[in-house]
Design a protein around this nucleic acid. Structure first.
Lengths: 232, 232
DNA sequence: TGTACATCAGTGAACGCGCGTTCACTGATGTAC
DNA sequence: TGTACATCAGTGAACGCGCGTTCACTGATGTAC
């Protein structure tokens, strides 16, 4: 009966969900290198070999965590953007910044998994690429919208980028249609600036130095937006 | 005899050097989490317990590697800066950027140890703080020199930072005497921008996107310098 | 509706591995008289 | 200069632990006639 097959499959899906949930929690305690199938199985009340009914290997579990992480962050970014007025480009950018920072602080080890040092011995499969671009796609749309509305006015304080980088700019341009090479490089600068700031905070580089981190972050993100030429 | 004590001590110092060298090489293969005293001992041709004559624990070895890493990078930064004309502030900044990037690409795992995700279960002792500031101290001196020579002219495209961050700015100001809160926040933005860019490249975020990385880096670092107001 | 068969989940033991750290010990190297 | 003693380096065995993965197996759950 297809109804009962579904029943079995639903239990199966639920268990997969439970395993990843536990694994994710273990991640936040021991980091990626310390993620252990046996420990997860123990917490599931299963014998360690039973996990292999659900994940063919430890690396597969890790891949699932990475994909889930990108999707969780990507979805949060999409929602934050969607909650803003379409023509409030600065507001949309800041909303994205805040949600990235908030998510990273709430899930530091997951953030480290996505944007920190690569896990030794782990090679990310193709499946991780698409979810990884969800967040940056939103960013591209904000800029593209601003360009289309002729509201992007980058201050003329910078030299033109060298023509060498045009092929790379073309790649990025698929995310920000209509952007000049100059805007593209500014956009990459701002985006890496966002993650540089978040990484410094999450990885502890601001300890004993910057303490009013929310305000600092807000202001520096505004700086980057101005470099980009976002209005207001 | 004090000469022979020195002989013994020199052998000892040499062995410590050799151990850290091997450990550093293992780091570049397996990452920090995979650094193993036993593996190092094996390569030294020693029995594993012999290592304990030189390092009281694995964490101590790790601390040594971190301190050495900060010192190596710090020294490289100092030298790169020293090789520039004192009043070529832009040149000095770019020299620092290039040496950070070059060192990170040459020693990705060491870079990850210093600026990547923290090693799970490892807590950095006080000894790592001083060497950690060597690089940023150079950066501060460049800006302070430019300010003193009245050559720092940040473009007036940014709002003033909120007064809340003044206490933090004061802390940073010990590194950049004479800087206003506005300059301080720009300086932090540029510095995190540098490390954001280097981390993205070293940790693989530019794969399949940015390929002319040296040119891209050079240009974005120039952008950040202009935001800072460095001349020429 | 009832029965024979196939699928699947989970068990338990095992393989082979590596790890950090401790401890009693053997020799060799240095020191003090 | 020679000898008794102290210091130190390195050994080898052991403790107790955890890991990923395989494999033959037992039951339970579903499927087809």
């Amino acid at each position: 009966m297809s109804a009962s097959r579904t029943a079995r499959e639903r239990v199966r899906a639920e268990l997969i969900r439970e395993i990843t949930e536990i694994a994710r929690r273990h991640l936040t305690v021991d980091g990626a290198a310390g993620l252990s199938l046996r420990a997860v199985a123990r917490e599931m009340g299963m014998v360690s070999s039973a996990i292999y009914r659900y994940f063919p290997s430890r690396d597969d579990l890790l891949t699932t965590l990475i994909v889930d992480g990108y999707n969780a962050l990507g979805e949060a970014v999409e929602k934050a953007d969607a909650a803003c007025a379409r023509d409030d480009y600065m507001g949309r950018w800041l909303a994205v910044c805040h949600v990235v920072r908030g998510w990273a602080l709430a899930h530091p080890h997951e953030y480290a998994l996505l944007y920190g040092s690569p896990v030794p011995g782990y090679r990310a499969p193709e499946d991780t690429i698409a979810p990884a671009t969800r967040g940056v796609a939103v960013y591209g749309r904000i800029l593209a919208d601003a360009i289309a509305a002729e509201r992007l006015a980058p201050p003329a304080i910078l030299p033109e980028p060298p023509a060498t980088i045009t092929p790379d700019a073309d790649t990025v341009r698929t995310l920000i249609p209509g952007a000049s090479d100059d805007v593209i490089t500014r956009a990459v600068t701002a985006w890496t600036g966002l993650f540089g700031m978040v990484s410094f905070e999450v990885f502890g580089q601001f300890t004993n130095t910057i303490n009013h981190r929310a305000e600092f972050f807000e202001h520096t993100m505004t700086c980057l937006a101005r470099l980009l030429g976002l209005p207001s």
